[in-house]
Amino acid sequence: MTAKDGELLNFESYDFDPTFGFGLLLTAFFLSFGSRFFHDLLDRLYYAKKAKQALTDPEIYKQGSAAEVARFVRDYEIDEFYEDYREKLLEDPNVYGFSIEEVHHKGGMEKGVVLYTSLDKINRDIFNYKLNNKIYKIPHEVRYQDGPIDTTSVSLSDEIKNKSTKLTGSIGFAVEDNTDKYLITCYHVVKHPEHRWEFFGTALQEEIMIDKNTIGKLVDGKRDHFAEGALIRVDASQNIDPLYPNPSHKQAFKSINTDTSSLKDRRVKMYSRQLGKELIGTIKTDRFSGAVKYGRTPFKMYELIKIEFDEQPQRKGDSGNALLDDQNNILGLIIGKKGKYSYAVNIRYVMDLFQNKNLKLM
């Protein structure tokens, strides 16, 4: 440090902290055991850090043994990996999905991540992370998929549709606020071509029809990376029950699920308009992120519900149907299918789209 003319050098004072010296002695003590011991110690500290992060999750206190706590911390690492990489991986046009599911690992099945792609070969190093010269591998599988989730609809006599379009689908369920009653379905089955996905203009309200009869007007519609939904206002005198593909199905609705716990392995059901019967299946994961085909343009969506129905997936034209659990709680809205699997948006995210309205189940 150089003093200018007429100035004195100003030395900053430093107060010695005894804990600093103790830290140096402790580090020297550990280093005396050799590099291998020191690396193992760092590994344990890294694990402890993950455990500390996991401790912020109330679920950890439900674990009944040390082994269960260890598994919980490992699962926490997989969740973090999924959160960090889902958006990056879906930037690749040949990657159509990334999810948390059960995978084959070390001779058994356990929680891991699944990459869905049309590529024959990928660099699996993305599933590795290096810590102190050791390579750790996230349990994973790579599965072939030839394209995005399909939302294509077909025309049936009882479809719900926009008067100005050929798009069709199904009614989800009815809600009401203090003054009006509405039907909720997927936006893509009633969207007018001039409507923007990001913003709904009230001047573009369109008549919504079932079997050539106008049932109401589309008053709101939205889509984000977690859900899509449409709100159809119906006349106060309109009897809604006959509008459902299966009128008795409406009577089963118990509540709109707001529970944030995992839906994995939950037994579910939905009524298929085209098949004319109830489909029963199992949720494979509620953490599927992937490309959904809206017209010609795939769109990234996160935290979709992936369902495998026992007999067959839903048919085209079932978009908008309510997905129920075995207690008749509404878990989601069906949006499309791919191969043997059906996909739904989580109803929590659908209701978030209309959170400015005080909606309740009718």
Results as ranks from 00 to 15, higher is better:
residue 181 K to C: 08
residue 232 I to H: 06
residue 108 G to Y: 00
residue 185 T to F: 01
residue 83 E to P: 02
residue 315 R to C: 11
residue 252 A to R: 14
residue 124 R to D: 13
residue 115 L to P: 06
residue 12 E to F: 03
residue 115 L to V: 08
residue 329 N to K: 14
residue 272 S to F: 01
residue 222 K to W: 10
residue 16 F to R: 14
residue 45 L to S: 09
residue 89 L to N: 03
residue 326 D to E: 13
residue 165 T to L: 00
residue 142 V to C: 07
residue 243 L to T: 09
residue 158 D to I: 09
residue 83 E to R: 13
residue 220 D to Q: 05
residue 98 F to P: 04
residue 65 S to E: 07
residue 16 F to S: 12
residue 57 D to F: 00
residue 357 K to M: 09
residue 334 I to P: 05
residue 353 L to F: 03
residue 282 T to Y: 02
residue 268 V to I: 07
residue 303 E to S: 15
residue 77 E to P: 00
residue 114 V to S: 06
residue 133 N to E: 13
residue 297 T to E: 15
residue 56 T to S: 06
residue 132 N to I: 00
residue 89 L to V: 12
residue 32 S to H: 00
residue 340 K to P: 02
residue 167 L to N: 13
residue 84 D to W: 04
residue 73 V to M: 07
residue 169 G to F: 03
residue 269 K to E: 11
residue 165 T to E: 01
residue 313 P to V: 10
residue 8 L to N: 14
residue 168 T to R: 11
residue 137 K to Q: 11
residue 202 T to D: 12
residue 180 D to P: 01
residue 258 T to C: 07
residue 284 K to V: 06
residue 279 L to H: 02
residue 192 H to R: 04
residue 104 H to G: 05
residue 223 R to M: 15
residue 254 K to S: 15
residue 72 F to L: 05
residue 168 T to Q: 11
residue 65 S to P: 05
residue 148 P to R: 08
residue 187 Y to L: 12
residue 205 Q to N: 07
residue 156 L to S: 14
residue 322 A to Q: 01
residue 259 D to W: 00
residue 323 L to R: 07
residue 169 G to N: 07
residue 201 G to E: 11
residue 270 M to V: 15
residue 255 S to N: 10
residue 51 A to L: 12
residue 263 L to D: 10
residue 233 R to F: 02
residue 178 N to H: 11
residue 72 F to M: 05
residue 326 D to T: 12
residue 83 E to S: 08
residue 19 T to N: 11
residue 354 F to N: 06
residue 202 T to W: 02
residue 271 Y to N: 09
residue 279 L to M: 09
residue 166 K to I: 06
residue 337 K to A: 13
residue 53 Q to E: 15
residue 268 V to Y: 00
residue 358 N to L: 01
residue 16 F to W: 09
residue 132 N to Q: 05
residue 302 Y to L: 12
residue 76 Y to R: 04
residue 175 V to E: 03
